[in-house]
Design a protein around this nucleic acid. Structure first.
Lengths: 352, 352
DNA sequence: CTGTTAGCGCCTTCAG
DNA sequence: CTGAAGGCGCTAACAG
């Protein structure tokens, strides 16, 4: 194995000066050539690029952003990754950001974590580590988001209604959660529900609160009610769905709910699991409806009726908003609300 | 709304000099106080910290790492986020890294992407943006990983066997894929399989290749064979499983496979979907076994027998290895191989 | 078109 | 224990 021109592991990093010396030009010319500055004559540019490649040169991002005040990184703050909504959002965001040359710093919350670590991590996003933050569906938005804004950080809020005064300092991409709840209620009513139930997520989640408001309004409009003893509340995870449903379904046959609205598909998974464990037929004994239309809602083993919100489009809109705002911080703040629709599947279709 | 001491949006960032001036000390003292340098007298420290907080000061990470050559960030490179294995790994890694004060830069591949963007993103991890890279299960490891190593970047390879010469320049955390494949074969044989089939992922994935090797060896040991027409190959996603199974199951009844080994649970989802669509009973008509033991394999609607590898423990080991290597790059390279075990569930239990 | 010069904000000797 | 001075690697004027 003879020597080669590429750098060897652990070596001192090669700087722009090293390249300049080797190419017989000045360091500024190296800088310009590498950034594609038009004022460099093609011959010189090619020479520099070749030498740089041979030496394994790569710009030091810290030094660059110390001057430019741009990092070419954005942060994505999300809820628990195990909730399949988030991978979809993150994947879409990342795709767009990478395409535009931005790196993605991930900060995801954990359903079972005490929270301190999460907030510290979000707070750590100030200090010029990223050019902006896409805040999606994580809990406890207000205080930390406020801090980010106070630090001058652009924030786009994706898939989360904000209740506080943040509304007019951030770009927001949401969908019509009230309408979604209403659609769910109407569909359950139309497929014959008489004793609807609901499995809810945390009360302090404004998006879920809106779904709930729409659901209740929808039921009322259809002449149905949602008494307190047919509501269960917990985290957004299947465990909550499972425990809530085991409890709800233990009611005597005549009082047992005949339909369950799950505020998210992820919760619905647990409800379906409970039905299976208890030998209840879905939708024969109980109808189940979710919210989000995750990929797996359509598998034949799941076959879950659900309210679809266009998560991919929403994430794309959020990425676009973020990039636009980084370009021009003075832009007016936008609030786009996407439409939702109902996707009927086997978990509510009644035989006859 | 009166004035306040906190910074206002879009303001010029406050620097260590600003804090120094306001506190009546030197910038070096500010730096020392904020890093908890023991040589600062408590009174001074508190003063500085208070002033810094009031002014909304936060260290400029670029300037710091320009000197220290440490970024307090690590990259996690993973496969397609929609494959539920990755959220589990990423979540675990992130937890540990955040606990140790490291940010996480995410680069995830996409099953449907052409690949160029992914490799560019990985290549962009050189240049001092991160202190190390955890490379987990993404495709095309060799060339890009080699480049990272050549650039002096520590790399930990998680849950991916490497076939090339990289082995002795990286830390590796894997599990016994050959044994896992063997366990699957033995279990299928023991539950009465006569005509086993296999739905495989890409051929160039060394971990999957080992599972396959173990599976074939296990079948042979049990007196079973795996003819070519009972093997289907595609991506690691449910679509592959669905299409492969629809095809496999279309064979005349006497020749139809009576058991399917899926190289990952994610593929198995599609196979179960196919069985459901065709009205085949699992495991009555066909047994199905997966690999990974994802959360949802245990839900009653799925109830998938699978080979478990301890993904959480493996991710923890990878994070620990990464942190250790950042501390001391001269450490000997480790290769930990975790045990796997079989988790029997309903998708293979034969009645009688 | 290219080179020279001056910092970006911080850490780190070295003096006091 | 604290301050002063230099420089990390790069970009961005400003000259030539």
């Amino acid at each position: 194995m003879g020597d080669s021109t590429v750098s060897t592991p652990g070596r001192e990093p090669v700087t722009g000066y090293d390249v300049a010396r080797a190419a017989g030009v000045s360091q500024s010319t190296v800088s310009r050539a590498l950034r594609g500055d038009a004022r460099v004559v093609p011959d010189t540019r090619e020479l520099v690029l070749r030498v740089a490649r041979e030496m394994g040169y790569v710009v030091n991002v810290s030094a660059r952003s110390l001057i430019t005040r741009r990092t070419s990184s954005v942060a994505v703050v999300s809820g628990d990754l195990r909730n399949p909504s988030f991978p979809v959002l993150i994947d879409t965001l990342q795709r767009r950001f990478h395409a535009d040359g931005y790196r993605v710093v991930l900060v995801s919350d954990q359903e079972d974590a005490s929270g301190g670590g999460f907030e510290d991590s979000v707070a750590g996003l100030r200090g010029g580590i990223v050019d902006g933050v896409v805040y999606t569906s994580a809990r406890t938005s207000s205080p930390v988001v406020g801090d980010l804004l106070d630090a001058g950080m652009p924030v786009v809020v994706l898939n989360r209604d904000v209740d506080s005064d943040l509304g007019d300092r951030v770009d927001r991409i949401t969908s019509d959660n009230v309408e979604g709840g209403r659609l769910a209620a109407r569909h359950l009513a139309e497929t014959g529900a008489r004793r609807p139930a609901m499995v809810a997520g945390p009360r302090d989640n404004p998006s879920l609160a809106r779904r709930e408001r729409g659901f209740r309004a929808g039921l009322r409009a259809c002449g149905l009610s949602l008494p307190r003893d047919r509501v269960r509340r917990g985290q957004v995870d299947p465990r909550t769905g499972l425990e809530a449903a085991l409890d709800l379904f233990s009611a005597p046959a005549g009082e047992r709910p005949d339909a369950v609205f799950c505020q998210t598909d992820y919760i619905a998974l647990g409800v379906l699991d409970a039905a299976g464990r208890l030998g209840l037929s879905v939708p024969g004994d109980v109808a189940v409806i979710g919210y989000n239309d995750l990929d797996w809602a359509g598998w034949s083993m799941i076959d879950l009726t659900t309210v679809r919100q266009p998560l991919v489009q929403m994430a794309e809109a959020a990425a676009a908003a973020m990039l636009a705002r980084i370009e021009d911080p003075a832009l007016p703040f936008v609030h786009r609300v996407f439409d939702v629709d109902l996707v009927p599947r086997g978990s509510t279709r009644r035989p006859r």
